[in-house]
Each structure stands twice: as structure tokens, then as C-alpha cells.
């Protein structure tokens, strides 16, 4: 068993089966950090949405997973990084139901609702990085823009 605390794991996202491996990795990390079942399920679901975006819209990339410790609180930070075309209008991309990929358009906006912290950095032509952070037990996430 490799120690993951205070270190960052880097996992490729280049195929269908990589998505499954990334989900499995996050599930295991979340369980080790002490997330309860609902928190685990939310984080793994958000991971699945964001990793699929990296694959489908970003043309592939990778995920960086870091276990965080802040005082007695533990958490996980996940970054989904691609070098794809970028997002022309991030605000529009975050809108429920907006899709350019033939999906339901719930990926980005939905994933944001499932985690405590969410940032999106993107420049046209220079790729996209989405970073999400979640904490054990922590404060309930603000329900901004819930459906």
C-alpha cells in the first residue's frame, strides 16, 4: 500500500477504462480519509463527471489527487487537467442543461453542487483545469444554484 498522505497522485485520463480507474482511486482515497458513504458517493460521482469532461471535451489529460490536512480536518483536492480547446464561456458552461457534447449538460454544474469548493480555469486554446476540494464531515456545501 503506497502512502498517499501529503503526496499527490497523478492518474492519466485517456480512455474509457481510465475513467473507471480514476473513480476507483478516488473512492479508495475518500474512504481512507474518512468520508462517509454519502460523501464518498458524491465525490466519486463528481469525479466521474469531471474526468469524462477531461476525456470528451479536453481530448484527454490527467487527474491530480492530494490528501489535505488542515488542523484536525482532513480533505481531498482533485484537479482535472487537459490541454484541449478550452472553454470559451465558462459561465455559460456552468449553466444547467448547457451542452456542446451531446450530454445532458449537468456535468460541470452538477459536479459543483456535489463538492465543497470548485474552481474552473480555462483559456481558449490552452486547456482547462477544474479543481474540487471536499472535507471530512465539514460544513455543508452552500446550496447555490440548486435545482
Amino acid at each position: 500500500m503506497h502512502a498517499r498522505t501529503a503526496s499527490t497522485s497523478r492518474l492519466p485520463i485517456t480512455s474509457d477504462s481510465d475513467l473507471a480507474w480514476v473513480r476507483q482511486h478516488v473512492r479508495q482515497a475518500a474512504a481512507e480519509v474518512g468520508f462517509n458513504l454519502v460523501q464518498q458517493t458524491k465525490l466519486v460521482t463528481a469525479t466521474s463527471e469531471l474526468a469524462r469532461n477531461t476525456l470528451v471535451h479536453g481530448g484527454g489529460g490527467h487527474m491530480e489527487a492530494t490528501v489535505l490536512r488542515e488542523g484536525v480536518t482532513r480533505g481531498i483536492r482533485l484537479s482535472f487537467i487537459d490541454g484541449g480547446p478550452g472553454i470559451a464561456d465558462p459561465e455559460l458552461a456552468m449553466t444547467d442543461g448547457y451542452s456542446t457534447g451531446g450530454g445532458l449538460g449537468m456535468g460541470l454544474s452538477g459536479a459543483k453542487r456535489l463538492v465543497a469548493e470548485f474552481t474552473l480555469e480555462s483559456r481558449p486554446g490552452q486547456g482547462t483545469t477544474v479543481t474540487v476540494t471536499d472535507w471530512v464531515s465539514g460544513v455543508p456545501s452552500p446550496r447555490t444554484g440548486a435545482p
Binding site: 458517493t41 463527471e49 452538477g110
Partner: peptide, 15 residues
């Protein structure tokens, strides 16, 4: 459907 999955689907906006 598992309860944790149902809770997550609703929050995701996928009912």
C-alpha cells in the same frame, strides 16, 4: 437504487 446514489442524483440535478 442505493440511498447514497439517490441523494447524489438529486443534488446532481438528475431526477
Amino acid at each position: 437504487l442505493r440511498p447514497a446514489v439517490a441523494i447524489t442524483l438529486v443534488e446532481l440535478g438528475l431526477t
